[in-house]
């Protein structure tokens, strides 16, 4: 997919380990501007979390990167090469898969048809698609059991597995997941997180939007805090987790209830 020129341009960025870089990004819908100059960098091989309250622009940021929403100003670089104004098909072809908010499965299609839609662009790679289908079924055995079932009739957790599996079927380098845990039981979230950590260890870079700030900061190496269309804080997740300002803004409720953080051993840096 990559031209020689893109590969050459990508060289310096790859040396620094940076996969995606966003500079001064403005974006929005119709007359409404949602992003007001976002700067963000995603390091290769890591897990980057994007946290912030509702309406902060996290989803819009992902939708702009994947080309669903046109950028108004600023730049997006993928491995050093300009990515802004690329079509969703091109973004996906370059290696960025987007698991959208609300999962957005094709409800009337079977689980397997949904997964194959994820591999829509790999038309000349039947062997690779079959291999990745097997891999998704190994990661999420539930999906194999239900592969003939209409995706819309499954539980929320199974649908999220299917949505992530569909994202993986494009064989991406970067997986962007919008709202991993929304509406799912803690046990299911735990399973999904374990699966993602395993994928990350195999080399998949992950950018995740997550409501559960504690979980997001524990699992990720780097995190960005967004508020009203801007990045207000960023840094190592462990540092943000210890930051009094972040704790007050996002974790106050947990501390006052005396709830201990559940997965303190799984910090990935």
């Amino acid at each position: 997919m990559n031209t020689a020129g893109e590969r050459a341009a990508a060289m310096p960025a790859e040396r620094s380990g940076e996969l995606l870089r966003i500079e001064g990004l403005h974006s929005g819908y119709g007359p409404v501007t949602v992003l007001w100059g976002v700067d963000l960098s995603v390091r290769e091989g890591g897990i980057t979390a994007l946290i912030g309250s509702n309406g902060a622009g996290k989803s819009t940021l992902m939708r702009t990167v994947s080309g669903l929403v046109p950028a108004r100003a600023g730049r997006i670089f993928w491995r050093g090469a300009e990515l802004r104004d690329a079509t969703p098909a091109r973004v996906l072809g370059l290696g960025i898969a987007h698991v959208p908010e609300g999962r957005r499965l094709f409800g009337a299609m079977s689980v397997e048809e949904n997964l194959l839609m994820g591999a829509y662009l790999r038309r000349n790679d039947a062997a690779g698609v079959a291999r990745d289908l097997g891999r998704v079924y190994t990661i999420f055995p539930k999906l194999k059991e239900r592969r003939r079932q209409a995706a819309g009739t499954m539980s929320g957790g199974e649908q999220q597995m299917c949505a992530i599996g569909r994202g993986l079927m494009s064989a991406p380098r970067l997986l962007m997941i919008d709202e991993l845990s929304l509406g799912l039981s803690p046990l299911l979230v735990e399973q999904l997180v374990d699966a993602l950590l395993a994928l990350n260890r195999e080399g998949l870079t992950i950018l995740v939007v997550e409501q559960d700030v504690v979980a997001a900061l524990e699992v990720s190496g780097t995190a960005y805090v967004m508020d009203t269309g801007r990045v207000t804080q960023h840094g190592e997740s462990s540092a943000l987790l210890a930051d009094p300002a972040v704790r007050r803004a996002y974790l106050g409720a947990f501390e006052s209830q005396g709830v201990s953080t559940p997965r303190s051993g799984t910090i990935v840096v």
């Binding site: 098909a89 959208p100 094709f106 299609m109 839609m117 829509y120 662009l121 494009s170």
Partner: peptide, 16 residues
């Protein structure tokens, strides 16, 4: 069928 069911999701799959 994908475009009929969810146009934006179909675009994310690379459908023109």
């Amino acid at each position: 069928i994908a475009v009929r069911l969810d146009r934006d999701a179909a675009r994310l799959m690379g459908v023109d």
